[in-house]
Each structure stands twice: as structure tokens, then as C-alpha cells.
Write a protein that binds this DNA or RNA. Structure first.
Lengths: 113, 113
DNA sequence: TGTAAATTACGCACTTTTTTGTAACCCTGG
DNA sequence: CCAGGGTTACAAAAAAGTGCGTAATTTACA
């Protein structure tokens, strides 16, 4: 589902999750089903081109499921897959880690001052 | 320890971990102390400019500690900090997640074939 | 009644911005 | 002149933003 050039799974995950958007999109999608335009509203700074490309990448990685409803105007819905849902706590853990280490750094600089 | 433009910790971690090198360097550094040239040998495809830049980024993020030993030729050692060590299992978990979902995808395509 | 406009989720071409690579230079003692 | 661990300037490549076009139906309005 992707050209696996490397043998290292970490390298491969990071190829999918790297960049500004993938984790953010997962973050918003964990609230539930979202349409393209909702994701745009959730994150106004992403261009529709990027949103489209990133969603496609996440879909190919098996993280996001895309459902098209025929009719006009067209309607497309995005959900996290099972695998995508499993990924959520791992990403949250990274966020928590960051918050903790950031606090630690503040304490250290207080001691020095 | 970094210009925190966003409020979202996930966005901030990913700014540090995004790209090909950060997780790889952490991966090699978890084996223990490494010198610049050792890291180059561990990963021959990284240019020394990138290695330098990425190590500096990880240092500023509080993940890596840099120790300079005076004397010639110069000697510089890199270690994971406490925070860096804490990060290791989180990154490993991502790798495991990838391996699992990849297997799942293979099974699915077998069923379809 | 005719028609223009809006709607949704993009694709495509083009431009700008950011990231990465290449190569050359620095320092100092042996 | 080498080693080790860089830095800096310049070039190439990759990623991201901009804006137009498209589909078929509904609504807006003269």
C-alpha cells in the first residue's frame, strides 16, 4: 500500500505522519465523521490542495476511510479506520510527552535564574 | 526553547519529529552515547550538514544532549536526555503500530484476491 | 420562464516557499 | 596535510499555496 523502500517500520510511519497536517487531521477526525469542508473549517490555514493530498495519503496508509455519496452537490465523508483509531492514543501520548518535557524545561530555567 | 506559535502540543512535537532523520537519530542514540562520525556511519545517507542541523534541533528540543571534549582532534558526544529516553517507547509504539496495520492490510488483500 | 449563481469536493497548472544536498572552508596540534 | 566536527554560500529538489475549471442540481431573481 506504499513503496516500502526501507525495512525500518519507524521510517515508514514517519513518512506518513511527518509534516504539519497528518496528525492534525487525525486529531480532528477522532471527533467523528467529517466532510471535506468541515475539515477545512476546523483548520482554516490548510489549502484545499493540501487537504486533498493529505487525506489521500492517510487513506492509502489505511488510517482514513473515504466515502463518496453520489448526488449534487457532491458529498464526501472521512472517518478514521480501525487502525486510525488505534493510532490516536499513540499520537496523544506524544502530545503529553511534549507537555511534560516542556514543563520540565521551564523548571530547569527557573532554577538557573 | 522554541518559538511556540501554536497552542497544540501535537503540532509542536511533530515540528520536531517530522522528517526522515529525527526518529532515526533517536533510534541509533538509544544504543548509547555516539559521536558525530558514528552517527554518520550508522546512517550513511545523511549528509553531514543535515546531521548537524538535526542534532541541533533535537538538542534545542531537549531530546539530545551534546558534550564537547576539548582536545585535538575535537571530540563531541551525543546522548539522549531523560526526556529523549522517555520518548523512545512512544516512537517504538508507532513502529509496532505500523507493523501490525501493515499485516492487516496484507490479509485484507488476500481475501479479495 | 429564462438564466445566472451557488453549492461540494476536488484536479490541474503555475508560483512561491522551504527543505535538502554539494562543496568548499575553518580551526588546531601533530 | 590530516583529523573531527562543524559553518556558510549556492543550487537543486520537494513541498505548499493560488486560482481557475468542472460536475449536476437547486435556489434566487428579473
Amino acid at each position: 500500500m506504499k513503496d516500502l523502500v526501507s525495512r525500518c517500520p519507524i521510517e515508514e510511519v514517519m513518512r506518513v505522519l511527518s509534516g504539519r497536517w497528518p496528525t492534525l487531521l487525525i486529531y480532528y477526525l477522532k471527533e467523528g465523521t467529517k466532510r471535506f469542508s468541515e475539515l477545512q473549517r476546523d483548520n482554516p490555514t490548510v489549502s484545499h490542495r493540501m487537504l486533498s493530498l493529505e487525506l489521500r495519503k492517510l487513506e492509502q496508509a489505511g488510517i482514513v476511510e473515504r466515502t463518496v455519496f453520489d448526488g449534487y452537490p457532491l458529498r464526501v465523508e472521512y472517518d478514521l479506520t480501525r487502525a486510525g483509531l488505534d493510532l490516536v492514543p499513540l499520537i496523544d501520548a506524544l502530545g503529553d510527552w511534549w507537555t511534560e518535557t516542556d514543563t520540565a524545561r521551564v523548571i530547569v530555567s527557573n532554577e538557573k535564574a
